[in-house]
């Protein structure tokens, strides 16, 4: 099954902020593990990103397909970092 294939090999919690954590934060706020899971749900879609730093600009929420918009700059606050899970495939 596709769902089983897409399962990540391992997961760890983020300890400090970097661009990967920011990326994961944006996906996880919208209800997805990461980009791989997002593209499974929305195969046709190209993810909208801010041109100057490549941060995600817009995602569809997993449950209802509503849109979440993200800021130009860092959004993931220090207090949120420990909640972010980083998956390896």
């Amino acid at each position: 099954m596709a769902a089983v294939e897409a399962k990540p090999k391992s997961v760890r919690r983020a300890k400090y902020w970097d661009e990967n954590v920011e990326e994961a934060y944006r996906f996880q706020l919208a209800g997805y593990r990461d980009e791989i899971e997002y593209s499974k749900f929305h195969p046709q879609e190209v993810i909208d990103r801010w041109p100057h730093n490549n941060y995600i600009k817009k995602l569809k929420r997993r449950n209802d397909g509503l849109f979440y918009y993200y800021n130009k700059e860092r959004e993931c606050l220090d207090k949120e970092i420990h909640k972010i899970k980083l998956y390896t495939h």
Binding site: L29, K58, R61, D64, L66, F67, Y68, Y69, E75, E80
Partner: peptide
Amino acid sequence: IALEHDTKGNKIAWKVEI
């Protein structure tokens, strides 16, 4: 916009693209 009681991460869910 979606009317929600828990606004996760202080975000608005937009029904239409801005």
